[in-house]
Nucleic acid binder design. Structure first.
Lengths: 245, 245
DNA sequence: CGCCAGATTGAGGAGCGTCAAAATACGTGG
DNA sequence: CCACGTATTTTGACGCTCCTCAATCTGGCG
């Protein structure tokens, strides 16, 4: 997975092509964006709250998250970002971002200057529309998280979350039944609004029910349909494969 | 408040002008959008989950919310929309929206066809950027809600939410210390992920502490600074007044 | 082989949900 | 202007979910 030759932007192109393919010229324009590769070690921040951003980062490999520290002492992970995602795309239109972005695992990201992106968008309005769509999807996912955390029991919440992660990796052809990244139980808790202890118990319950199992440090979904049912999961909000009008 | 002559898009223009004013031509182009006014009664849906949308609605008066019904039976209100907001702006780039939009109070909205918006954006790219920014802010607010619901106690969560609503109305010059819309305790609970009973107790606690008081059916913030402290509130994420680059 | 991050388990308690009832406000028609 | 039906608020009692604290266990690695 770490061969330099593979470090291109094909996951991003793939994402933006969802629904309706980009033209060769557009795909090529994206691939030729002036990027700077950055290897980030696990736990390292990529962007800090309040930084005036002048560039965006595209996840190429690894696992990145957006998080915030709240006064009462806890960390809240607001989103996970997998290859092809642009965690700080919103920074293109906002002065500052009010969250941190960090790598949870050793990761590789591509840094692109906002200037380059603005030029790209000006020359290829269609790409601008697709990127705007990404911002909209980001919001849709966040809203789904609000519902998940606000109104579902811990068990259903966890099931829903696991379904989301699996579906996103499946859309990239990076998974069939196993979530290919390692997420610790502490991280699961910090994203789903529960304590590590309770995460552990909920996972145990899902294992006992035959819905999931551990495969080394990864989580394998043994019964995706049942898990989706347990989590009241409908993948529509991820907009993984819809057409563009 | 219901004089027809006031039913223009000035709140929207105001929103989009934040940070750096729009040109007269741009402001005028927005004001001349072909809109259809729609009076919506309290409780009526404006958009249903999964509707293939071909138009967007701009809130002119009243209070509108985005919500979802989860399997376990509860309603989760994901966002409140006040005058100048476009609750379903994301629909401009997504096939379908996976949430409902309804009026919580008698409201007036302006319906605009996506076609008209696309033309507007094509002719005024700057307006497109500002609308894109709105999508980004929508996502930022949703992420703040994730943190709020996921990691704060009921009391801090409520304080944070009240600060948010007040700040948004203040930015429109529609409030000084009183949230000018009525939100029932049931609605507060459905948005903050708590039961009506607990909402009532939390509000009581905030009243006893002298942070808020009731003014008829409205909530008046008696000590905004203290309430912000109690809710660990920092308005940055609302991006109410920042410059555009 | 020892160390350490992460996982697991137990016990006890706080926060918050549920159920149920009463109180209050609000709109409507007489 | 009052009577009445409905929506909302308020309060109490009780219990479940989930948190905290704390200890033990496991697997990976130098």
């Amino acid at each position: 997975m770490s061969i330099v030759a593979r470090h291109d932007l094909h996951f991003l192109v793939h994402r933006l092509s969802r629904g309706f393919p980009l033209s060769d010229m557009e795909a090529s324009a994206i691939s030729h964006l002036p990027i700077m590769l950055k290897h980030v070690e696990a736990g390292a921040d990529i962007l800090r709250e309040g930084d005036p951003a002048s560039e965006a980062c595209i996840v190429l490999e690894g696992l990145v998250c957006r998080y915030e520290i709240v006064a009462e002492g806890g960390r809240q992970i607001q989103a996970y970002h997998i290859p092809g995602d642009i965690p700080d795309l919103a920074g293109l239109h906002l002065q500052t971002l009010e969250h941190n972005i960090c790598a949870l695992r050793p990761s590789i990201v591509a840094m692109v200057s906002h200037r380059a992106l603005h030029i790209l968008i000006a020359e290829h309005p269609q790409i601008g529309a697709r990127l705007w769509r990404e911002t909209a999807i980001d919001a849709a996912v966040a809203h789904a998280w609000v519902s998940n955390i606000g109104r579902r029991t811990a068990r259903a919440r966890m099931a829903h979350f696991l379904c989301e992660m699996l579906a996103r990796y499946q859309a990239l052809d990076l998974a069939s039944d196993t979530i290919p990244c390692i997420i610790t139980q502490l991280e699961l808790g910090d994203s789903q609004g529960m304590s590590v202890v309770h995460v552990n118990r909920v996972l145990k319950s899902l294992k006992r029910a035959g819905l999931i199992e551990m495969r080394g440090k990864n989580i394998r979904i043994r019964d995706q349909v049942a898990l989706q049912f347990a989590g009241d999961f409908d993948p529509s909000y991820l907009h993984l494969s819809e057409a563009v009008h």
